[in-house]
Design a binder for these strands. Sequence first.
DNA 1: TTGAAAGCGCTAACAT
DNA 2: ATGTTAGCGCTTTCAA
Lengths: 350, 350
Amino acid sequence: MPKSKDSPDGSAGEQRRLQMVDIARLAGVSVSTVSRALNGSELVNAETRQRVAELARSLNYSINFGARNLRLQENKTVAVVVPYDAKSRQHISDPFFLSIVGSIADALTDRGYDMLLSRVDAERLDLASHWFDSGKAIGVILIGQWRQHDQLNDMAARKLPLVVWGGEMPQQLYCSVGGDNVLGGALATRHLLALGRRRIAFVGDARLPEVWLRQQGYQQALQHAGLQADPALELPAAFEPGVATGELREFFAARRDFDAVFCCSDVLALLSIQALRAAGRSVPGDVAVIGYDDMPLAAYCDPPLTTVHQPVAEAGAELVEALLGQLRGERAGPRTLPVYLKLRESAPNT
Amino acid sequence: MPKSKDSPDGSAGEQRRLQMVDIARLAGVSVSTVSRALNGSELVNAETRQRVAELARSLNYSINFGARNLRLQENKTVAVVVPYDAKSRQHISDPFFLSIVGSIADALTDRGYDMLLSRVDAERLDLASHWFDSGKAIGVILIGQWRQHDQLNDMAARKLPLVVWGGEMPQQLYCSVGGDNVLGGALATRHLLALGRRRIAFVGDARLPEVWLRQQGYQQALQHAGLQADPALELPAAFEPGVATGELREFFAARRDFDAVFCCSDVLALLSIQALRAAGRSVPGDVAVIGYDDMPLAAYCDPPLTTVHQPVAEAGAELVEALLGQLRGERAGPRTLPVYLKLRESAPNT
DNA sequence: TTGAAAGCGCTAACAT
DNA sequence: ATGTTAGCGCTTTCAA
């Protein structure tokens, strides 16, 4: 038998949580009637319905969703999973990812869903399926695909309701939603070329699908301009500030044969600017810098960052819609959202 | 009757979720035995236990937590609530609050709890009790007390298991956990005084308890130095960048009779630096600037921010412990965590 | 229009 | 060591 104490959660001496049976007794009706009344059923007398509803409200009664969901076999909770780097115990705290989480929170709230937020080892994204398997969530939204493209495909093959923020890759079985990374890379590069810059460094780890796509855009833009991408100017910097800082300082100290840098995140852009200045080069005078994401603080840095704007506000709604669509049985493909270049001082228009 | 379809969540054609009864049938035992085996009960034959466990694992069975919780009258979910400004539809996206959320996520995960993340109108923090009332969470952690001190006291009086990140105020009924704001304000101010600055502006809205406490520390430090705080140098800037930007530009354009600024968040410090530069003043040369929080990006700004470091890593553990303690019936008071000054370039040591 | 009763998936007291 | 049974709080069929 469960605890027979009057306190369902073990806290001593608190009042027992109100249940339907309590309302029923006080209203002088059966629980069935209370249930119907509270759900606005037409089957119950309007006067009774009114009375029960009022009583429930005045007593501050809230329905027990666990019981309701069990009975109804339904659930309005979505798991949102943020990968983190378990090896370095370092958390993915990139402002951009956090913005996406906020955007998803809004979208879920608007649709009456709850959000279960958790972290998962970036090497074992497949563990995210646990939330679905255990019935705690009806599906999973994963923020970033990292290098686990295969794991994600497996998860989709196992019929896990899953949507991933990230880039669309060839032969992809799972549903992804993301910005147009190829376009973003091309926009940034074209702008730098238009400024007259010819030696453009690329900062980002192309093992990540999103970065790889941006690199494609970067290379395409160079080719279009009749230039050849120089692999020596491509630095596969990590996303974690702690790791990237050293890599960038070393890189910028070693070589000066470039006049622009395209970074695959605003944080990397910030770090690059610092490293460039440490190497005695000015931004944007000597080196123009373009970031990616347009994070909330991008406008308040010094210099304010020219950056590829990602559609954060739309992202949440798109991710949620994709997941709910999947649950309705729709066979939705990956979605690519538009991006644009936000001009500021780190690579100004002149 | 609930849907009799084989799909519990309405998605067409997927396999029915595995239950104990399925494992039981396949193992040739009763559900009780499966339940016991899976819970590692000593009452079940070691060989059987092994066999059942293996079967469950190979079939990828996960227990239905909704049902388990209903039966056990227990719940391992905590609601974490981030207030937002409903009027401006602007979200509290301050990097510091997001860091705290991350820290709480870690602490909860370590203890085997799930985190339900949601937002609530900052004017109606009392709505956060919904998560408890509906049985979805065993308690609520609220990030920031805003100006709703009274609402929070009411919630605590209603016996809602609640912990709030924020400052400790007189006659406070609810449990708060926060940094030592008075000390933080004093440390920052003392440092600026030690640099020889005498006219120190204060930026922050003292209607918020945390800011009010920091202001106390600021004023105390000035008095200790034999100086009088000048109310004309106190700017009650909002926390939202959009609003604050204008206020700061106006303020710094109007008056130049100060040589230092103490800001109640790093974001405000960043905005102040921009506004100061726009007004033709250098940082830290003309004006030294100190921020608050030591957000992840504080070290990567230009100049890197001298700031009061908040114990983010400890914050999550403290908040969670305080909540769990409350649920165990312990009568825990507010907790104040140590802070220290992190010296960087915006108000360097020399 | 209302109430009695069954059952959602699970655990535990009670039997064997 | 294992099975039978009752019941967590709710919704809904069925009967009245």
